[in-house]
């Protein structure tokens, strides 16, 4: 069974998803960071495929994308790095997050095949339109056992949330507030109202909140009405500031600090 499905069957609250960019800070850091996050207790991990023009991302993740590209990271290289991770004891569910163009250039069917072969469980492609997904991608995703994760924002209409929920089969990614990743979202009354409004819709998929979640307080506030939350930019900043030799320990401390 898909590892995402299993996860959400067993865990329905305080799920922690951590994002990091593949090939950052060093090209070969991808798999060691994956190991460290699993050992630290992250429930699922989202690996970013770097892109030259990440429009949905704020400065922190943009820079990590650029550095990863400068390091030589590509979609093909990432799949090479992920070869055999499942044989090496990585059991945590893995999502690949990225923009559509590099995936299209790699070849969509080949991409799905490689995801299945390396043990990737799901994909987040923010600029993949819903109707294109339905028309061209859904059959391939199903064939290769891949879950597609859709984003929902405070501006998304209830009707569209239901439509997305109907198509999704992993979880729904709730964008906490209008903005790009890493924006300072204070978990204010507006965000709380949006999250409880979404909860009231009674979606069939689990929900994880992202954008602006950076510490224990924002994680707790975000998880009140949802299945859990996603931390990205704050984790990238940690990687940026941590010397290579202290990376594993710093990751452990960071993850432990989110759910004290």
């Amino acid at each position: 069974m898909n590892r995402l499905t299993t996860l959400f069957q067993h865990k329905t609250a305080d799920v922690l998803n951590v994002y990091f960019t593949a090939g950052f800070p060093q090209l070969t850091d991808t798999v060691p960071i994956l190991h460290a996050l699993q050992e630290a207790g992250a429930d699922l991990v989202e690996i970013g495929m770097p892109y030259s023009d990440p429009v949905a991302d704020g400065e922190t993740i943009q820079r990590s994308n650029q550095q990863a590209l400068d390091n030589g990271m590509t979609v093909a290289t990432l799949f090479e790095q992920l070869q055999n991770i499942r044989q090496q004891g990585i059991t945590v569910p893995i999502l690949l997050m990225g923009y559509l163009n590099p995936v299209v250039q790699f070849g969509i069917e080949k991409f799905c095949q490689q995801c299945q072969a390396t043990g990737v469980d799901g994909v987040i492609l923010p600029d993949l339109p819903l109707e294109v997904f339905e028309r061209e991608y859904q059959p391939l995703f199903t064939k290769y056992g891949l879950k597609n994760v859709f984003l929902v924002t405070p501006q998304t209409s209830a009707a569209r949330v239901r439509q997305l929920d109907g198509l999704a089969d992993g979880f729904i990614y709730l964008v906490a507030a209008a903005g790009t990743t890493g924006a300072q979202t204070d978990m204010n009354a507006d965000v709380d109202a949006y999250l409880s409004r979404t909860k009231a819709l009674g979606l069939r998929n689990p929900t994880l909140v992202g954008f602006g979640i950076s510490d224990a307080a924002s994680f707790a506030a975000a998880s009140r009405h949802t299945t859990g939350a996603i931390i990205g930019s704050a984790f990238i900043r940690l990687l940026q500031h941590t010397p290579a030799e202290g990376q594993a320990a710093a990751i452990k401390e960071f993850v432990a600090g989110i759910r004290p």
Partner: peptide, 18 residues
């Protein structure tokens, strides 16, 4: 390829970076 919200023709690397 895809750039700035449209499918079009664009200058890019083999890996799809603009």
């Amino acid at each position: 390829g895809i750039l700035h919200g449209a499918s079009t023709i664009l200058m890019q690397t083999e890996d799809g970076q603009v």
